[in-house]
Simulated scan of single mutants.
Amino acid sequence: MAGTSLFDLGATGVERILETAQSVLETGFSTIVKHMHTLRVVGTFLHNAPPYERAVAQATAARLYSSHVDLSIHRDYALSDAEILSEITMASSATDLLLTSYTDPQTFGDGRRLTEKLPSVVSTPMISLADDIYGSQAALAELASVRRHLDRIEGRRIVICWGFGSRFVLPRTPHSLLILGAMLGAEMRVAAPPGFSLVRRAVREARKRAKTTSVVIEEIDSFEGAFEDA
């Protein structure tokens, strides 16, 4: 089936997702469950994913009264992309929805490339939770919280602080948050120490997809003062 990037949905599509998330928070899952009666089996295809992603997928499937099956490939040896795609194609045909999170930190970018290939070979609807470049589902959760507390995102100034901690993680959520925030019309500021700036392709994507040409995307290398006017 053909794939559609979350970014391709545009500001209107992303706003609808955030509105649906707000409705679920306010009314529980009862409202959405009646529209999901065909969602009987949810499959997950996870590779190097944080444990919470599996737990969240299982909990969500349970709240939707759906069964959850783990389609992750567990091998003691590496598989080629063709072998991975072949296995997941066969397994996913038994599901109604496929959730993926594929990260390969040793070959930065390969997880994204594999994720982009999946929609063309699987026959079931698919949602990418994350890969090694983008973490859009986590970014949507962050923006849903901003929207809930500030009422709107457009015109707000959002600061992304990354790289100042003692533990290095892939900046996939900051990448998606930067792009989605700009799409929704927020002024975006990225605070990261020297040498830890976000991947240039993500910054270019944010500038390209910004809601208007007046949307400000700023990068600074100091933690001090980063939040003063946010």
Rank of each mutant, 00 (worst) to 15 (best):
A226N: 05
L9P: 01
R75C: 09
K34P: 00
E116L: 14
G163I: 06
H47E: 08
P50A: 15
F223T: 00
E218T: 06
V33L: 14
E187N: 15
Q106F: 11
L150S: 04
R147Y: 03
S72M: 03
P125I: 07
S222C: 10
E219Q: 12
A2L: 13
R40D: 07
I127G: 01
T44C: 11
S5M: 11
E87C: 08
L118T: 05
V122H: 09
V122I: 12
A91N: 09
G185A: 03
Y52I: 08
A78D: 14
R75A: 11
D76C: 10
A206R: 00
L97K: 11
A186I: 02
F164H: 07
A61P: 04
E87I: 12
R207L: 10
K208M: 07
M36K: 13
K117Q: 15
S86D: 11
A61L: 07
P171C: 04
L25C: 10
M126R: 09
L18V: 00
S30G: 06
T20W: 05
T60A: 15
S128W: 01
R63I: 01
K208Y: 10
G3T: 05
R112V: 03
A78I: 10
V33Y: 06
S72A: 06
I84G: 02
A55W: 06
T115N: 12
V14R: 02
S222D: 12
G43S: 08
T213G: 12
T60R: 06
D221F: 08
E116D: 10
G28W: 05
R200G: 09
F108W: 13
F7K: 09
H74Q: 13
H175Y: 06
R156P: 03
V159H: 04
R148T: 04
E224M: 04
V122Q: 07
T212Y: 03
A202W: 02
V122C: 08
L118P: 04
E224R: 10
S66Y: 03
R209A: 08
R207G: 01
T27G: 13
L99V: 04
F196E: 11
R75S: 14
L71I: 06
A78F: 13
H74G: 00
F196A: 12
T212Q: 03
A49D: 07
T89H: 11
S66M: 07
I73M: 06
D70A: 02
S93N: 13
R201W: 06
S80D: 01
V122D: 02
R147Q: 12
R209V: 01
D70C: 03
D229G: 02
D76K: 14
M188N: 03
V216F: 08
I32P: 02
D110S: 15
V216C: 08
E53D: 09
D76Q: 11
A192F: 01
Q58R: 13
R204G: 01
